[in-house]
Amino acid sequence: MNRAARIALIVSAALASVGFLALAGWQVQRLSWKLDLIERVEQRLKADPVAPPAVSAEVTKADEYRRLRLSGHFEPREVLVQATTELGGGHWVIAPLRLDDGSAVLVNRGFVPPERRAPDAHATPTGPVELIGLLRLTETGGGPLRRNEPAEGRWYSRDVAGIAAQLHLAGPVAPYFVDESADAAQPLRYPRPGLTVVRFANNHAVYAATWLALAVMAAAAAFYLVREERRRAPP
C-alpha cells in the first residue's frame, strides 16, 4: 500500500470515528426524548378524563395521549384505515362523533379483522353515547411506503382532514382524533377498542453504547495507522 492510500485510510478512520460519535450523541438525545414520552404517557393514562379541546384550539404533542370524555352521537358513516395490531392485520374503524355543541370529532372506534370489515359486522351505535378515549394527533400523508388513496378507498394513516373531507362532514371538525378506550364493564365486541400502543420500546441506551464503542474502535484504528505511518517515515 502506497503512502497516499495509507493517508486516505487514516482520514477515513478518523471521519468514521467522528461520525459514530455523532450518532452516539443523537441516540442520547433520543433516549431523553423517549424517557420524557414514557413519563408523560404514564401520567396521562392515570389522570381523570377531561372535556375535549375546542375544535378551534391548537393541539400539539404536549396534548397527545390526554384522556378525554366525549358525549354525542355517531353519524352513520365511516372510513376503514389499514392497521396491524396485537390481534393481527385488519382495519381501524374511524367514525365521526357529533358532539352536543354541533362540532364533530373523528373517533377510532377500534380494530376489526378483515372478515368483519363490512359495516353490518360492526354496526355503529345509535342514539346518545358517552365514551372515554385518548387524544391523538393527525397522521397526514399515509404509511411509510404507501400514500393514502381516498378516491380508491385506501387509507394507511389516520389523516383527520383527509378523512373528514372524504366523509363530507358538515360544521367544524376537531383537528385531532380520539382512540376509544376499552370499557372493562362491557363485553368484548368489534370494533375492538383499547389497542392504542402505550408501551414504547426504549433501546436508545444500547444503541448509544454501540455507536460509542464503534467510535472508540475507529479512533484506535486511526491512532494505530498514524503511529505506523510515522514509523515508516524516513529519519
Score class of each variant (00 low, 15 high):
Leu169Arg: 01
Pro172Phe: 11
Ala201Cys: 06
Ala170Ile: 06
Tyr190Met: 07
Arg199Cys: 05
Asp183Ala: 13
Arg158Thr: 12
Ser157Thr: 03
Ile163Thr: 04
Pro144Thr: 08
Val173Phe: 08
Ala184Pro: 11
Gly142Asp: 00
Asn202His: 08
Glu152Ser: 13
Pro172Met: 14
Gly162Asn: 08
Pro150Trp: 01
Arg192Cys: 12
Val197Arg: 14
Thr196His: 07
Gly141Asp: 05
Trp155Lys: 00
His204Lys: 08
Arg147Asp: 11
Asp183Arg: 12
Tyr176Asp: 00
His204Ile: 02
Ile163Cys: 03
Arg189Val: 10
Tyr190Cys: 04
Ala184Phe: 15
Gly171Trp: 01
His204Trp: 09
Ala174Glu: 01
Asn203Leu: 10
Glu149Arg: 09
Ala170Phe: 07
Gly162Ser: 12
Leu145Cys: 00
Gly153Lys: 01
Asn148Phe: 00
Gly171Arg: 05
His168Arg: 13
Pro193Tyr: 09
Arg146Ala: 11
Arg189Pro: 08
Thr196Leu: 11
Arg199Ile: 05
Glu180Leu: 08
Arg192Gly: 06
Gly141Tyr: 03
Ala165Ile: 09
Ala184His: 13
Ser181Tyr: 11
Ala185Arg: 15
Phe177Asn: 06
Gly141Asn: 04
Glu149Phe: 07
His204Asn: 13
Ala170Val: 09
Pro144Met: 04
Gly194Thr: 06
Val160Glu: 00
